[in-house]
Structures are given as C-alpha cells and as structure tokens.
C-alpha cells in the first residue's frame, strides 16, 4: 500500500505537514536518507577494489578447498592482519623478494615472490612434507594455470602478472582434500 504523499506543487507545505514521528516515510525522509548515503560514502569511502576482492574470494570459496593460514616469518609487524592487507602494505617495496608461509594441518607451503622481467612476478614455492602436488594459480578474470611440483615439493611460476592471486594445492595421488592460500597481492 502506498501511503507516501504525492509530491505536490507546494513542496514545503507537504514536507512539513506530512512529518509525523510515527508516520511512514515521506518524500523528505527519502531525500534526507539519499543525501545521508552520499555523505556516508564521501566520509568513509569503500576501498577501491573491495568488490573485486570479494568476488574473487567467493569464486575461491566455491572450489571448496580448505583455507590455509598465513604465517609471517619475516614480517612480524603484519600482526593479525590478513595476507591481502599485509601484501598491500608491502607495495612500497616491490623490488624486494618476499616470503610468505602458509599452513594447514600437516601441510606447509612457503612461497617466495621476486621481481621478474617486465614488472612481472616470479613465484617459487616449496611444500612440506615433500610429495607430488598439483598447484593451481587462480587470479580474478584469468584462466587457471597449473603446475606440478617435483618430488621434493618444489614448484615455480616463472612470470606472473601482478595483482591478486591464490594458490590451490592438491596431492597428485588424490589423497587429502584441496587447500588454498588466502588471497595474496603479487
């Protein structure tokens, strides 16, 4: 049922006459809330890319791989923040290699990110305990790239474009489930 007063020629009169604390939303309520929404967005804007990061996270969640935890061996100040936030904070020094360790139950994956030609990134990884692993590199809007580890659990992606990514690791023999890293910023 529509109890909203029709916008009238005499807007001031309608706006004030219709202002009833127990009443339904009137046109001015709507205008105030619309203006408030703009102000809220201006004062504390949603971070750029949060929607894309969320969409990517949803896609990864749909794979139903168990999430690994990031452990910061070389960046203790990263504290309780997530991997994505920690990686963002490191953006200021992209020329340096960076190591992140991920753990899940008995599996530990350590990756080192280092600069590669053309502003791209090289990923060297090592998984323990050593086993044959299929490692998938997931990125938003890009086809999945897969590589296999050697018998020592070492793997590499030579040249990857910068941006958000997640690794999904499965045992080649099919034992255990898939595990994925949190989203990292390459």
């Amino acid at each position: 049922m529509d109890l909203t007063p029709e916008p009238n020629q005499d807007d001031e009169a309608v706006g004030h006459l219709s202002f009833d604390p127990k009443g339904v939303l009137d046109a001015e309520d709507g205008a105030v809330l619309t203006r408030l929404a703009r102000a809220v967005g201006a004062v504390d804007p949603v971070p750029e890319g949060l929607v894309e990061r969320s969409l990517f996270a949803i896609t990864l969640a749909g794979l139903e791989a168990d999430m690994m935890e990031a452990v910061y061996l070389d960046a203790p100040l990263a504290g309780v923040r997530g991997a994505a936030a920690a990686a963002r904070a490191d953006d200021a020094a992209p020329a340096e290699a960076k190591t992140i360790t991920f753990t899940h139950d008995s599996l530990t994956v350590m990756i080192t990110l280092s600069p590669s030609a053309g502003g791209r990134v090289r990923i060297d990884g090592w998984a323990a305990p050593a086993a044959g692993l299929d490692v998938e590199l997931h990125r938003p809007g890009v086809d999945v790239v897969t590589t296999a580890s050697d018998e020592d659990g070492r793997f590499a992606f030579d040249s990857v474009e910068r941006g958000r990514a997640s690794l999904v690791v499965r045992r080649t023999d099919g034992g255990g489930g898939a595990v994925s890293t949190p989203i990292i910023e390459l």
């Binding site: 971070p47 949060l50 996270a57 990864l60 923040r81 997530g82 994505a84 936030a85």
Partner: peptide
C-alpha cells in the same frame, strides 16, 4: 580499521557461499 574491515567484508561474502 580499514585494512581489517577489508578482510572482514571479504570473509562475510565467503561465509555466505559456504
């Protein structure tokens, strides 16, 4: 804070899918 809120929003969407 903004960095932590970024992670919380993402994990909320992930929780919805899960």
């Amino acid at each position: 804070d903004r960095d932590a809120a970024d992670d919380v929003v993402q994990s909320t969407w992930v929780a919805l899918v899960r």
